[in-house]
């Protein structure tokens, strides 16, 4: 009798632990979704500024094409190719900033770009940390054994090159 009670107690504790763990993981996934959504909105804003710059009167047709194409690539890229596509846009913007006199003629969009770049760095750091925590947790035996992650896709990191910015 007492051994039965013991088994019951342990299985109750175990079930509690499973729901507790599933809750934790659910929360972590939500964290990743939030950090990604915020990162995404900053990237969208950046692409919009890039298009704005592309349509300035002083921009030559070749640069216009490069910027528009890079911004378009960044917009249509899937989540796993996103970082690479955004790097292309970063490169194009950086080139324009360093090699042309457009930033002197039109400082406003570039000032906003600088501000955005700072926020972007922070957003990436926060997203990376959220992804790392989630992936770490999901790799634990109990989570894989009991499929606590359900059908949620494994979050992907965003290996944005800091120095391109």
């Amino acid at each position: 009798m007492s051994s039965f009670a013991l088994v019951l107690l342990f299985s109750l504790i175990f079930i509690w632990y499973l729901t507790f763990s599933a809750n934790r993981l659910d929360r972590l996934h939500h964290r990743v979704e939030t950090s990604w959504a915020n990162l995404d909105s900053i990237l969208q804003r950046r692409a919009a500024i890039a298009r704005e710059i592309a349509h300035l009167r002083e921009i030559d047709p070749a640069t216009n094409l490069i910027l528009i194409a890079a911004a378009h690539q960044a917009r249509i890229a899937g989540i796993s190719e996103r970082s690479e596509a955004e790097s292309g846009l970063s490169g194009a913007l950086k080139h324009l900033r360093d090699e042309s006199d457009i930033p002197h003629i039109h400082p406003e969009p570039f000032k906003e770009l600088d501000l955005l770049t700072d926020r972007l760095r922070t957003a990436i750091a926060i997203h990376q940390e959220a992804v790392r925590a989630t992936v770490n947790r999901r790799s634990k035996l109990i989570f894989r054994l009991f499929r606590l992650a359900g059908r949620a896709p494994l979050p992907v990191t965003y290996p944005f090159e800091d120095d391109v910015l």
């Binding site: 939030t34 915020n38 926020r119 922070t122 926060i126």
Partner: peptide, 26 residues
């Protein structure tokens, strides 16, 4: 303030956790 914005999804609010209640529901 920038960190606050990055920590939040649109129109999300802070609530008292419902873990004990979800356990009861379960």
């Amino acid at each position: 303030m920038n960190i606050y914005h990055l920590a939040r999804a649109a129109s999300e609010r802070v609530q008292v956790g419902s873990e004990p209640r979800s356990w009861l529901r379960f």
